[in-house]
Design a protein around this nucleic acid. Structure first.
Lengths: 224, 224
DNA sequence: CCATCAAGTAACTGTTTAGTTACCGGCACG
DNA sequence: CGTGCCGGTAACTAAACAGTTACTTGATGG
């Protein structure tokens, strides 16, 4: 109830003390979030089951509703965390410090490899778009998260134009959409593509080839 | 039961006779298929409701189960029809009759515009990939439908290589995946993209710009 | 050692869902 | 004329579902 210095002190003491592990609210919360990420990624919003999330998290529905309100709020939380994940890792690249051509190549490589290592992120995007960004639109946390990317990319392109290596028509959003398109489609649609074309797209050789293809196409599209 | 000349004659008579319109099996069947296409496209496999499909089709569940067996078989039928639709239209392009550069440009334009005019096809692909092509894999009708595309594309590329306009490394599957990637991602992810980048991707100006971009990128990636 | 309070459990509820069954009505044919 | 068949209706059922409520457990502070 009250958050006096006394109780705060006790909380710190509790948090740093080895406990029986039967109770661990933060752990439970994190477990629910992770379980929900997997469940929503595998089954979509309509197909995900609240009971399944609770079971995967090793807890029960009572805790899920206690920490997250309801299914929709939990889903939004999962989606927000997924975006924070990729944008944070992207920012750490610091593409602005490289020469323009390398910077674009690095961003393409990073994006492809992130998609490859985080299939659940691609699934969540697919689900959210199926619903026309119904939940993402309600998010208040994500408005500023993405502007940094376009800003940095814009600077890199300007630098390249001045140096005479990039075409004057190169546009930052177009460049990012090109990189993301080539990575997203190949991975998210790998199952139908492999089926209809009778060729397993996910073998190491094919993945390597497509990685090189993405870098090649991206640079070919903006070089003078 | 039996399909003698007599009963066949009667069927023809029935089909050509103006009836009370209370009964029309083919119409009902087609209405169910069309309603199911929309329902599955809008809500995915998990989110689609059999009652909603029946209502949209102006009929009821009894007929749906009568014609299509169950929800899963109906879904597969919808998916198969969607693939037949795009591959049939694609074949009519006859890209083999054009000069190589125009042929690739035409294929890119066609694919983009088909995606633009058939959002339900993109949604169905998304849903099917979410489930790792679980139903498509079971389809026996679709094995040969797609080989024609790659064959024709392969011929065009060979012709272009001989003429010296295309790079020797250009690969037919890669070219198609490039075209499809750029169209698919832009449209299927337009909702989250427009939200996070604060720019409406679906305005006529932006659509035109992206159409030109796809053709430009595709050709830039294979030109010598 | 007892009172308190939050973490966690499990059984329950009202609703929705896929799939079924019992029935209706008109048409073709004997 | 009446019998069987087929397109179509609507009410039903069993299971699954999201969300709730009554309860247990165990740590902590007095």
């Amino acid at each position: 109830m009250n958050d006096t210095g006394e109780s705060a002190k006790k909380k710190i003491k509790r948090a740093s003390t080895e406990r029986t592990a039967q109770r661990d609210p933060e752990r439970t919360r994190a477990a629910i979030l992770e379980a929900a990420t997997r469940e929503f990624a595998e089954n979509g919003m309509g197909g995900a089951r609240v009971d399944a999330i609770a079971e995967r998290a090793g807890t029960n529905k009572r805790m899920l509703y206690h920490y997250f309100g309801d299914k929709e709020q939990l889903y939004l939380r999962v989606l927000e965390e997924a975006y924070v994940g990729i944008r944070t890792a992207e920012r750490a690249l610091n593409i602005g410090t490289r020469n323009p051509e390398d910077a674009i190549g690095e961003l393409a490589l990073f994006t492809w490899r992130y998609f490859l290592q985080h299939p659940e992120f691609l699934s969540l995007l697919g689900t959210e778009n199926l619903h026309r960004a119904r939940w993402l639109r309600q998010s208040v946390r994500l408005k500023e998260l993405h502007s940094h990317l376009i800003g940095e990319l814009s600077e890199v392109l300007e630098e390249g134009k001045k140096a005479g290596v990039f075409s004057e028509t190169a546009d930052p959003l177009n460049v990012y959409l090109t990189i993301a398109s080539l990575g997203y489609f190949y991975l998210s649609n790998q199952y139908t593509l492999s089926t209809i074309f009778g060729r397993d797209l996910i073998t190491p050789d094919n993945l390597d080839a497509w990685e090189r293809h993405i870098v090649h196409v991206t640079l070919a599209s903006i070089k003078r």
